[in-house]
Design a protein around this nucleic acid. Structure first.
Lengths: 313, 313
DNA sequence: CCATTTGTCTGACTTTAGTCAGATGAATGG
DNA sequence: CCATTCATCTGACTAAAGTCAGACAAATGG
């Protein structure tokens, strides 16, 4: 019974879609087409803007329009202009629609309940814990890392959270002004980069690169939202930063860190960073690390992989 | 972040169907309608009987017939008479069909791979483990317990496995002939019952009840397939047996068990069985238990949550 | 051998789902 | 104010999914 991870996922996939997907589809329904029920459910108690509905359910605008019409004809919802933008519209459930929504909601509860029904307490607990874990990791695999403006809204959000956390964790508190600089200009090419990790569009982590010498970069502002830790996001950010560093011609990467940040230290050590003597005057730093990029050991001409352009497609 | 189990499941449901369901649907596809691809995939390398396909994918026979026709027209499969039953037919993939199947198969691998792609080794391992666990429990909730003929095929399969296991586990080996009798006639109403636990139609456990006196029943043949242990099936069987016992007018339940069967002993103790002196001459027994049904007692109301099989679809 | 049941097919449908090319009116950025 | 862009709606489609009532031949159970 030893399965590869791939097999395991495929099997999981089958079981889950059969057990949940199948039920899930017809616990909705209620006489009206599935699409309409899903839409009704998605609108929710507070109502929703059509634009959001369109993107959340990825519906064609014409199709959405028609579905809404049919629900409207059944007296389940009303469409009104959005308060701020007269082009946009907003769907609100009527009293009848809310009732219908409640039915759908309770059905979805029944589905969940039926999964629990046949398990004992101990089993339930374990299943719930395992589900939470799977969900967490599935979400982790949705995290996207990309270059972003270090002074954008999302970036500022992360940095603020980052500073706030340092303040909490450092024995001495933390004042960005006393720390080593990392102004937006220093974190944009060609001087550096700023990377953001996003989940569902929301920022959940960041990391930056700042040039501090010829071929030497410094890693700064590494932070992951507490709710998203343990998912390997920091690792991915670090790898991405190293990639960016290479692109910016930095062969040596340095960084400093505070003694209270154990996870960070572990991360760097795990990734081949060696502790070195103090290289800056950051008052908050207790450890300094450095890593030199390997000399692309195989720059021999017969590594034709890159230039070869063998068979296409 | 404290969610009730129900919320947890619903959230899991959403995440998984969005992440896997959505991808899953279009990794198939390949130019032909989803239904046809699914069918092709389901037929598999060994081919399949139409009847099985119909039930596995729950398709209307007319619809299935049409889908098969279109795949046949594309030269992907051939239909042949089933060897044993000239009414039945069997779908077999042609060489071209197998090729197409392989493509679908590899796509489904890609899907799995993409879920792993962004995780580190440690995370992967944990996710896979959690998936295995969730899957296990989901399957557990598919187990159905029902009365069955003690001399049916499925029952004989279980009993054989049961005897075989006892033979392995008892220090003394095990010979059914030396043990206390439990002939089919003793395990059918009004003398007793035989319950089977099935998963996907396959037997995975059993338990029986035999009348041994006025208002006194004996629990026998409790067994759960090793691959399905830890899912609470024995617990459910026991509860179901107690229900049957009540229906058969047995107020006292007894049973014996061998010293090597620790899990069994734990199960009975957990369920309110008290150890009593030897009440039979079973040479394989070391412990004897008894439980008297409460007189419609006001046992704590919160024990009512067992296998309620809550609000069905 | 005959009445039934079983497994599959066929034809004639209806519903859902999904797409596309405009039309319309409101914002938006000079 | 004007050209664009945006958000939505409409009409005219097509394709896919699903349903139903027979028809037919093979098996099954007396």
């Amino acid at each position: 019974m030893d399965m590869t991870p791939i097999d395991r996922i495929r099997s999981f996939n089958r079981t889950v879609t059969r057990r949940i997907g199948a039920l899930g589809d017809d616990y909705l329904g209620r006489g009206r087409p599935l699409g309409a029920s899903r839409l009704l459910f998605e609108i929710g108690r507070e109502g929703a803007n059509l634009r959001d509905l369109r993107s959340r359910l990825s519906l064609d605008s014409g199709y959405l329009s028609r579905l809404l019409r049919s629900l409207e004809a059944d007296g389940l919802l009303a469409l009104e202009r959005a308060p701020d933008d007269a082009r946009a519209r907003r769907a609100i459930l009527t009293r009848k629609g809310l009732k219908e929504w409640a039915v759908l909601d309770s059905r979805s509860q029944d589905l969940a309940t039926s999964l629990l029904a046949s398990l004992g307490d101990a089993q339930r607990e374990r299943m719930i814990a395992a589900m939470a874990e799977v969900e967490r990791f599935l979400r982790a695999s949705e995290v996207e890392i990309a270059v972003a403006a270090p002074d954008g809204t999302a970036a500022r959000h992360c940095l603020q959270a980052y500073f706030h956390e340092l303040q909490q964790r450092f024995d001495s508190g933390f004042d960005p002004a006393l720390s080593v600089s990392a102004a937006p200009g220093e974190l944009t090419p060609p001087n550096g980069t700023f990377l953001l990790a996003r989940l569902d569009g929301h920022p959940v982590g960041c990391g930056a690169l700042k040039r501090i010498g010829r071929g030497v970069g410094e890693i700064k502002r590494m932070w992951v939202d507490p709710t998203a830790r343990g998912l390997g996001i920091a690792q991915r950010l670090l790898e991405a930063l190293e990639g960016e560093a290479a692109a910016l011609g930095m062969r040596i990467l340095r960084l400093d860190t505070n003694r209270s940040l154990d996870e960070a230290r572990a991360l760097y050590l795990r990734n081949g960073y060696r502790e070195i003597p103090r290289y800056n005057d950051n008052p908050y730093a207790h450890h300094w690390f450095e890593k030199t990029r390997a000399k692309r050991a195989v720059s021999r001409p017969n590594s034709a992989k890159t230039s070869g352009r063998a068979g296409g497609a």
